[in-house]
Simulated scan of single mutants.
Amino acid sequence: MGLDTAVSKPHEALAALLSEDMGAVNALIEDRMASEHAPRIPEVTAHLVGAGGKRLRPMLTLAAARLCGYTGPYHVHLAATVEFIHTATLLHDDVVDESAQRRGRPTANLLWDNKSSVLVGDYLFSRSFQLMTETGNLDVLRILSNASATIAEGEVLQLTAATDLRTDEAIYLQVVRGKTAALFSAATEVGGVIAGADAAHIQALFDYGDALGIAFQIADDLLDYQGDSAQTGKNVGDDFRERKLTLPVIKAVAQATAEERDFWVRTIEKGRQEDADLDHALALMDKYGTLSATRQDALAWAEKAKASIGQLPDHDIRDLLIGIADYVVSRLN
C-alpha cells in the first residue's frame, strides 16, 4: 500500500530482526496454501502473496510476542493466520470493488474470475481457523474470530455508508475500525496473549494496533487524493470515482453550502459524474482545508499508537514499533 518511502528503516530493521521468524511464517503459509485437489487455490494465493506486500500485520504479531518474551513456536502460526485473514479479505475486496489492480499488478478476479477469488478467499479464511486451533489457546481463538467477524461487519457497513452523505466521522471511524484496524489490533493483541503477558501490556498492544490501523487507513484514504500513483498502485481519485465517502470528503460535506451539497449528492450518492468533477471535488476539499485536516487526524492517531506501545518495557522491538507508527504516516510528507 505504498509504504516504500525514505522513512522505511523501522520496517526494514524490524524485518531484519525477525527474519528467522518471518522465514518460518512464509514456509508455513506456503505449506498451508497448498491444495491436493484444487490447484487453482495455490495459483490464486501465490499471485497475491507473491505480489510483494510488506507483511506488516504478521510482523506485528511476531514483534508483539517477542516483545513480551515469548520463546515458543505458536507466534509463527498466529502470524500466518493473520496473513491468511488479510489475504482472504483482499481477494473478497477486489471482487466487491470490481478492482483491476492490486499492488501494481492485475487482481486475481481479473486474471481468473470472481468465483475463484471468492472461493479461494473462503478457503484461506478456513485455513486461518485451522491454524488458530493448533495453538490450543481459547483466548487467541476468541480474539481472531471476533476480528474476522468485525472485518466482515465493517465491509458490509461500508457498502451502505460509502455513498450516503449522512455518513459522519463517527461512522467512518466505525468502518475503519472494522475493515482495517480490527486486524491490526488483533495481530498485536494475540502476540501478547500467546506470550502470557499481563493484562495491562495486552491492552497496550491492542491499543497500539488499533491506533496504528486507523492511522494507516486514514493515510491511505488521503493518499487517494494526493498520492503518487507509482507508489500507491492506485490512480489519484479512485475513491471519488468509486463513490467512496472517505474522511477528506466527509469533512468537506460537513461544511458544504446547499449548492456544494448538491454536487456531492450528484457525484457520490447518485454516481452521475462528469469529466471535471474530480477537479471540482479537489477544489472544494482545498477550500475547506480537509486534506490538511485529514493529515492531522492521521498524525494524531500515530501519536496515540506511540503512546500506547510506550507503556511496554524498554526493548529494541518496542522502539521499532514506535518508529513504525511514524512510518505509516511518513507517506504524507
Rank of each mutant, 00 (worst) to 15 (best):
D220I: 07
V249N: 03
I268W: 03
T5A: 09
A307W: 02
D93T: 08
L91V: 08
K179V: 06
L165Y: 11
K234S: 10
L28Y: 06
S99L: 09
V25D: 00
A80K: 03
V7S: 05
I85C: 04
L67N: 11
S308D: 04
E260D: 14
K234H: 11
A197Q: 08
I322C: 10
P39I: 02
F206A: 13
M22R: 09
S126M: 12
G209M: 06
T61K: 06
R272E: 14
E259M: 10
R241M: 12
R243F: 07
Q273C: 09
A16L: 13
Q311S: 14
A147K: 01
M285I: 11
E98Q: 15
A24G: 07
D207K: 06
A187S: 15
M132D: 00
V44H: 01
E269H: 11
G72R: 11
V118E: 08
L111T: 15
G154T: 04
L312M: 09
N146G: 13
A162F: 07
G52P: 09
H315M: 07
L124T: 04
E30A: 15
E134P: 05
D316V: 08
A307G: 04
H47S: 08
P58Y: 06
H92G: 09
E303A: 15
K234G: 01
I324T: 02
T246I: 08
I214T: 09
K179E: 06
A258C: 12
N26H: 13
C68M: 11
M1Y: 13
G72D: 13
A307T: 12
A38N: 02
Q255D: 03
K251G: 10
I309Q: 02
E260V: 07
A34N: 06
D122F: 06
R272N: 12
Q174F: 04
R243K: 12
L157W: 09
F125C: 03
D164R: 11
A230M: 10
G50I: 13
L159M: 14
L62Q: 01
I151N: 01
L90H: 03
D228Q: 11
D198Q: 13
M1C: 13
D198G: 09
A46W: 01
A302N: 05
L247S: 03
L14T: 02
A34T: 00
V95H: 02
R166P: 01
A300Q: 10
S148H: 03
G192A: 10
K115E: 12
